[in-house]
């Protein structure tokens, strides 16, 4: 299990970009932290999610 935004999700074995695509995130409006470190956008496709990983996906919406 991977903890994503506080919930246990069956996503181990997927790359980050596969997971983001599956959940329909727009890569241009997010920031992703893996185990408290930012994942650069260039690395989404070769970042493999493992059991026990903690992922925070911050999705920004417009307005300010």
């Amino acid at each position: 299990m991977v903890k994503i935004n506080g919930k246990d999700v069956n996503a181990a074995g997927l790359t980050l970009s596969e997971y983001l695509k599956r959940e329909s995130y727009n890569p241009k409006t997010i920031a992703v932290e893996l185990n408290e470190y930012i994942v650069s956008k260039d690395s989404y496709s070769d970042t493999l999610l493992n059991d026990g990983d903690v992922v925070e996906i911050v999705n920004f919406v417009g307005g300010g």
Partner: peptide, 25 residues
């Protein structure tokens, strides 16, 4: 939303020692 995300990514990647306070929603 894109400018927000861009800023968050740049700051978190380039300045890990700084604090970042964002807004969304």
């Amino acid at each position: 939303a894109q400018a927000k995300a861009m800023t968050a990514n740049i700051v978190l990647e380039s300045f890990p020692e700084k604090y970042l306070v964002c807004a969304s929603g």
